[in-house]
Write a protein that binds this DNA or RNA. Structure first.
Lengths: 246, 246
DNA sequence: GGTCTCAATTGATCTGGGTCAAAGTTAGTC
DNA sequence: GACTAACTTTGACCCAGATCAATTGAGACC
C-alpha cells in the first residue's frame, strides 16, 4: 500500500492537481495546467469512452463513479476497474482507449486536452513520476484483483469487494479503531457481478448470506453497515493487512 | 497493442538497454547504466524475491522464465504475471515487493541497484517515460487477464494462454501469414493452472480435448504445434485481433 | 391510492469444473 | 536395464455457482 504525499492546493474541484500532479509541483505547472483544463459532465448510465475510440483527453474524476469494462462479442462483460473521485483516466502516449468507460452515477470529470498535457509532461518530470506512481498503484490493484477472480469463492469475492469500497468510501470513522464502517454501495447487483466474475443471482444470494450471518447490515438495498471490519476482512480471505484495490 | 520503437545497441546481454531505457537514450545514460549494472543467476524453482521483502534492485530478465505469484494463507495461489526475457522487474519508488517472483527455468537477470537507478531516473526523463510505457503495457495485460479469469471457460482460458505464449515465444515463422506456430511450453500443468485459476487436472483434460479436436498438436508434453492460429484465437474467444498478454 | 418499471430476492434444477484416486510417462541416476 | 521421483493423464463422483423462472420490493409518475 502506498499513500502519496501530496500537499493540497487551493483548487478543491480538480483532483488532478492534488493527486496526479501536485506531489511537489510548482506555480508554473499549476498555471499551465489551468490553461488547458476544462470540465465534462456525464449522466448515470452514459458511456464516457468506447473501447477502441481514440481519446482526445486525459483527466480525473471529480465526482461520481465510473467503471472500466471489457466485453466479449457474445456479451460477457468483465469490469476491470472502478473509478472513484480523484482517480485518473487516460493513457498518456497511447492512441485509443482499451476499455469502455461507463458512468455508473452522474459523473463530472476534470479533463486536459491530451496533446498539451503530454507536452507539459515532457517538460515537467514531476508529472511523469506521479503518473508512474499512479499506474503502479493501478497495476497492484489489478493484480490483487486477479487473485480474487481466479481463486476466491463467491462469498470471499463479495467480502473483498465490500472491504475495498468501505476503504475508499468511508470518511474516517470517529470511532476508535474504525471497526465499524458505514457506506452506500455505488453499484447495482449486476455491476457487482461484472466486477466479481459472478452472476447477479449469486451476488444477491451471498449478500443475503452475509446479512444473515451478521457480517453486514443492510438498510434498503444500498446502505451498508459493517459492524466489524476485521470480521469482513477475514471473510474476504485476507486476514492480514491485505486487499487494497483501486 | 504497443510496440516500442527502440534502436538496438551493441549490448546483446542486457535487455534493459534495449527495451526499458533505450528508446532514445544517449551515450551518457548508457555509461551510467553500465556503471551500476550487474548480473544474477537463479536456478529453476528458486524464489527470486519473496512478497513483502524489501527490494534492493530493479532489472530485467536476460534469459529464462519467471513468474509473479500471489498466495493466500491456505495455499491457494494465483499467478499474476509471466516474465519472459527482456521483461522488467521491480517497482522504482516502491519499498517492498508485492508478489513472489519465482524462477520457472534457470534465469539470468540484469540488475541495477535500486537507489542509483532511481537517481538516474530522476535525472533522465527518457527512462521515466519508458518505464511509464512499460507499466501501462503491463496494466493492459493484467486487465486483459482479468477478463480471462472472470468470464472465460476452461477451454477458452487454455486457448488464451497458448495464444499468448505462442505470440511471445515464436520466432516469426517464414510461413506466409504465420498461421502455423511452433513453440515449447515453458510451464508445467500446475503453473498453467495457477495462471488460469483452474486445477491441474482441468488443464490436462482441456489440453487433451484441444489435441483431440486438432486445435493443437502435442509432441511430448511440452512441444506444441498450432496448425492454425486463427482457429486457436477463435477458441480463446477473441476472434478479432484481441488477446495480448504480457 | 394505483400501476408501471426496474432492481433485487428466492426457489428449483443443471452442469462445468473441482476433488479424490489410480495409473501411465518421462527423465535421471545408479 | 531397473529404480526413483516428478509430472501428466484419465476416471468416477460431487458440489459451488450458473441457469431458468417466479415473486417481491421500491421509487416515480399519474
Amino acid at each position: 500500500m502506498n499513500t502519496p504525499n501530496f500537499t493540497p492546493t487551493k483548487c478543491e474541484a480538480c483532483p488532478i492537481r492534488h493527486r496526479a500532479v501536485c506531489a511537489r509541483c510548482n506555480a508554473d505547472e499549476l498555471v499551465e495546467l489551468d490553461a488547458i483544463k476544462y470540465y465534462r459532465s456525464y449522466e448515470a448510465g452514459q458511456t464516457v469512452i468506447w473501447s477502441g475510440d481514440k481519446m482526445s483527453f486525459v483527466g480525473s474524476v471529480v465526482s461520481g463513479i465510473a467503471t472500466l469494462t471489457q466485453t466479449m462479442e457474445d456479451g460477457r462483460t468483465q469490469m476491470v476497474g472502478l473509478l472513484l473521485p480523484s482517480d485518473f483516466v487516460g493513457r498518456p502516449g497511447r492512441g485509443g482507449a482499451a476499455y469502455n468507460v461507463i458512468a455508473t452515477t452522474d459523473v463530472v470529470m476534470c479533463c486536459f486536452r491530451k496533446k498539451p498535457f503530454e507536452d507539459l509532461m515532457e517538460r515537467t518530470p514531476h508529472i511523469a513520476h506521479r503518473l508512474l506512481e499512479m499506474t503502479l498503484d493501478e497495476l497492484d490493484a489489478a493484480r490483487e484483483w486477479m487473485l480474487v477472480l481466479g481463486r476466491k469463492t463467491a462469498r470471499e469475492k463479495i467480502a473483498s469487494l465490500l472491504s475495498i469500497i468501505a476503504r475508499r468510501n468511508t470518511a474516517p470513522t470517529p470511532d476508535k479503531n474504525n471497526d465499524i464502517m458505514v457506506f452506500d454501495l455505488p453499484l447495482t447487483r449486476e455491476a457487482m457481478a461484472d466486477y466479481l466474475g459472478l452472476t447477479l443471482e449469486t451476488v444477491s444470494r451471498q449478500m443475503s448470506a452475509l446479512k444473515r450471518d451478521e457480517v453486514i447490515h443492510l438498510d434498503g438495498k444500498r446502505h451498508i453497515t459493517v459492524p466489524d471490519m476485521g470480521r469482513l476482512l477475514e471473510e474476504a480471505g485476507d486476514d492480514n493487512d491485505g486487499g487494497f484495490l483501486i
